[in-house]
Design a protein around this nucleic acid. Sequence first.
DNA 1: TCTCCGATTAGAC
DNA 2: CTAACGGTCTAATCGGAGA
Length: 422
Amino acid sequence: MTMTRQIALVDCNNFYVSCERLFRPDLKTTPIVVLSNNDGCVVSRSNEAKALGIRMGQPWFECKQQAEEQGILALSSNYALYADLSNRVMSVLAEYAPLTEVYSIDECFVDMTGTHKLRDVSYEMRQRVMQWTGIPVCVGLGPTKTLAKLANHIAKKHPRSRGVFNYNDLTDAQQAKLLGQIAVDEVWGVGRKLSKRLAALGINTVQDLRTAHTPTLRAEFGVVMEKTQRELQGVCCIELEDCTPDKQQMVNSRSFGKPVTELAVLQDALSVFAANACQKLRAQNSHAALVHVFMLTNRFRQDQPQYNPCMFVPLPMPTNDSLVINRWVQHVAELLWRDGYKYKKAGVVLHDITPVSVLQADWLEPDVTSSTRLMNAIDGLNTRFGRGTIKVSTSGRSDEWAMKQERKSPNYTTDWHAVPAA
DNA sequence: TCTCCGATTAGAC
DNA sequence: CTAACGGTCTAATCGGAGA
């Protein structure tokens, strides 16, 4: 007989806000929100901010006034800080199991199957993350990833759980009762649209979904929903991924801090996007064969003329060379550009990505090595001294397009000067 | 008719 | 001072084009 799986989903509480508070303990009870890139939307809220009615994903300009009136502190996002702290959390978790899957910047699945005294170990894991990183987490345990996520939701919501909830500890009757009290859109993979369609079939709670007529579900919603149902029934359909698969596309795009009306400025931005996309490509040892360039006007400004062109360039030879790809990007930018529009956003996407190894045998391509060496040097410097130390093109108009970040905290973990005095 | 492809949709965070 | 809404990524599905 096989042992019941014990899958843990460890999720950091209000992650970005918790990161900011680590270095500002004086803000422990201050309502805080962290804003997305360009100070656009609220992407993380402290419990106090939630209690004051700030919604997840809410555009900042909508709640700015309310925030000021209620003394809510808003911070621009500081991704270098969050990535650093995320790595620390993940390494602590990795010590608890041979198999972990980092699912997102603030979430990790841990296969605890076979762990003795699971409850005690889970509390200890939570305690250790807190002690070693200062980040509070909740632990959800269940026989499948989907149920572990649900268990985590319960751990977060019910203070009595003290941060750990194990679905496997419930009797059948308790499971049915509990799932009957949770709305179906809390299920991993069921979002706004699907929950509406499910409601039309009378499926409103997680328990409804778990016990729904499978053939109907399959016919109406497809294979994914059927898997979700099986997972809710405790049958593992979604395994932990031990190694992260290579990216199939690399996107680098930004909204601009103010509208761009000059080709040279847009080209400057695109050269940075191209360089960043290529660096990610090289980091996973891949080549791309298709380059996609786009530029967008502000879709929220229906009073202004809209123009959202894009172009795909198939490369004669796959490459990860920033210089080669940037040449194409710059050329395409000229072709797409039209005067008279206010551009709000642009980006570079690399497609048709393959591992370098399968193509390295092309002896006809001259001088691959010198370009590879140059790229290695660029990546090395940028990793060591910070992104943008070496740039592909330094036309230097970035002040004209850089995103708005009026409220960013210092780089506490990467800059000694930023650490506040004790 | 089958297959491949691009576009669209839905979701996660 | 005013303005004016994120960024990546994946999988499934659908409809049309081409074999």
